[in-house]
Amino acid sequence: METDKLLQSEVRVINIGLAEFAHDLERCDVPVVHVEWSPPAVGDPRIAALLAKLGG
């Protein structure tokens, strides 16, 4: 089970959004990569949702 694996393994985080959260994890020596996020697809949430659905 994926959930069981998560609870037994090292937590490795992709942080998308507030940079603070990535800094906090770094301070705890947790492997983390911060994504420099910005609103996609000319800022239109509907197009962003469509792109994500299509696997983009």
Partner: peptide, 27 residues
């Protein structure tokens, strides 16, 4: 990001609400 952190297992998402579902679906 995933190519930088092999074995990543959690996406922590805190983008503005209107874009959050798209990011979660991708993750």
């Amino acid at each position: 990001a995933l190519s930088q952190l092999p074995g990543a297992n959690i996406a922590l998402i805190s983008v503005p609400g209107e874009f959050a579902a798209a990011e979660a679906r991708r993750a």
